[in-house]
Deep mutational scan, measured.
Amino acid sequence: LTVEVTLDGRRIELHGLSEEAHEILRHALERNADDKEIKKILEELRK
């Protein structure tokens, strides 16, 4: 799955996400998580 997010003013596409990762990010974006929170989530998903 692919998600497009804006971090530090740049639009980035995240490819190859699992369903779980996609859901976690989608929920964070829906509640307008800040860049710091999104980065933390991405860091966790990379593990």
Rank of each mutant, 00 (worst) to 15 (best):
L1E: 06
L1F: 15
T2H: 08
T2P: 05
T2L: 07
V3P: 03
V3G: 04
V3S: 05
V3D: 03
E4V: 15
E4I: 15
E4S: 13
E4W: 14
E4T: 15
E4M: 12
V5H: 02
V5S: 02
V5E: 02
V5K: 02
T6N: 08
T6I: 14
T6Q: 08
T6E: 12
L7E: 04
L7N: 03
D8G: 08
D8K: 02
D8A: 05
D8Y: 03
D8F: 03
D8H: 05
G9M: 01
G9A: 02
G9N: 04
R10I: 15
R10P: 03
R10W: 12
R10M: 15
R11D: 08
R11Q: 11
R11S: 06
R11W: 10
R11I: 14
I12L: 07
E13V: 15
E13Y: 13
E13F: 14
E13N: 08
L14A: 03
L14I: 15
H15D: 07
H15W: 10
H15V: 13
H15C: 07
G16I: 04
G16M: 06
G16E: 05
G16D: 09
L17F: 06
L17S: 00
L17M: 06
S18P: 06
S18F: 03
S18D: 08
E19P: 12
E19K: 14
E19T: 12
E20D: 09
E20V: 10
E20T: 11
E20W: 09
E20N: 08
A21F: 09
A21Y: 07
H22N: 08
E23A: 13
I24Q: 09
I24P: 01
L25D: 00
L25H: 00
R26K: 12
H27G: 13
A28N: 01
A28S: 03
A28T: 02
A28H: 04
A28P: 00
L29P: 00
L29C: 05
L29A: 04
L29V: 10
E30V: 06
E30K: 06
E30P: 00
E30M: 09
R31E: 07
R31M: 11
N32Y: 09
A33D: 03
A33F: 07
A33R: 04
A33E: 05
D34R: 04
D34F: 04
D34A: 09
D34Y: 04
D35A: 07
D35S: 14
D35E: 15
D35N: 09
D35W: 10
E37Q: 07
E37R: 02
E37M: 07
I38D: 00
I38F: 05
I38R: 01
I38Q: 00
I38H: 00
K39T: 09
K39G: 08
K39W: 12
K40N: 08
K40G: 11
I41C: 02
I41K: 01
I41G: 00
L42K: 00
L42N: 00
L42I: 14
L42A: 01
E43G: 08
E43N: 07
E43S: 10
E43R: 12
E43Y: 09
E44N: 09
E44I: 11
L45D: 01
L45M: 08
L45V: 06
L45E: 01
L45S: 02
R46I: 15
R46K: 13
R46M: 15
K47L: 15
K47M: 15
